[in-house]
Simulated assay, not measured.
Amino acid sequence: MSEEKPETKRERFRQEELKKDPSGSFHGGGLPDLVGNLGWKTTGSILLALIAGFILYGLFFR
């Protein structure tokens, strides 16, 4: 029996939850779904770019 990938397992749980409570999907998934879909490298890159942007903004636009 092959192991199920975490992304696949998470998506299967999400689909089961939507079947139980379809109104829960009206407002969207939010940050956990976004981060889960992007992966840790992309999420880290976005966070690093935001931090660098705030630092550069603080240095040049005081």
Rank of each mutant, 00 (worst) to 15 (best):
G30Q: 01
D33M: 09
F26H: 07
G28I: 02
K9W: 15
G53Y: 11
R14T: 09
L56M: 13
I46N: 05
K5R: 12
L38Y: 13
L50Q: 08
I55L: 12
K9F: 13
L48W: 08
L18H: 14
L48S: 13
R62S: 12
E4I: 12
T8V: 10
K41L: 10
M1C: 03
F13C: 01
G30W: 07
E11I: 11
T42N: 08
H27M: 04
K41I: 12
H27C: 02
G53H: 05
G39R: 06
F26I: 05
E7H: 11
G44K: 04
L18G: 06
P22D: 04
L59S: 07
D33A: 02
K20P: 00
E7C: 01
L47W: 11
L34I: 08
L47Q: 08
L38C: 07
F26C: 02
K9M: 15
T8P: 00
L50H: 09
K41Y: 06
T42A: 10
L31G: 00
R12H: 06
I55M: 06
T42I: 09
E3L: 14
G39D: 08
K41T: 15
L34T: 02
Y57G: 10
H27R: 01
F61H: 07
F54P: 00
L50V: 06
K41E: 14
I46D: 10
E16S: 02
F61D: 10
D33F: 04
A49L: 13
R14F: 09
G28M: 02
T42Y: 05
N37P: 00
H27F: 11
H27N: 02
F13W: 15
A52G: 08
S2M: 15
S45I: 05
T8H: 12
G58L: 03
G36N: 15
R12Y: 03
G30K: 02
S45C: 05
F54K: 08
D21Y: 02
L48I: 07
L47G: 11
G30F: 04
L34Q: 13
L50R: 07
F54W: 12
E11K: 13
K5N: 06
F60V: 03
G58Y: 06
I55W: 12
D33P: 00
L18R: 14
G29M: 12
R14A: 00
E3Q: 10
K9Y: 11
R14G: 04
L38E: 13
P22S: 01
G44L: 05
K9L: 09
I51P: 03
G36M: 07
I51A: 15
S45R: 09
G29S: 12
E3G: 03
D33E: 15
R10E: 14
L47T: 12
L56R: 06
S2F: 15
E4V: 14
G24F: 01
D21C: 00
E4R: 13
P32Y: 02
E16G: 03
R12L: 02
W40G: 04
R10G: 00
I51G: 11
A52K: 04
S2H: 14
P32M: 05
E16A: 03
F26L: 04
G36C: 06
L18I: 12
D33I: 02
L47N: 07
K19G: 02
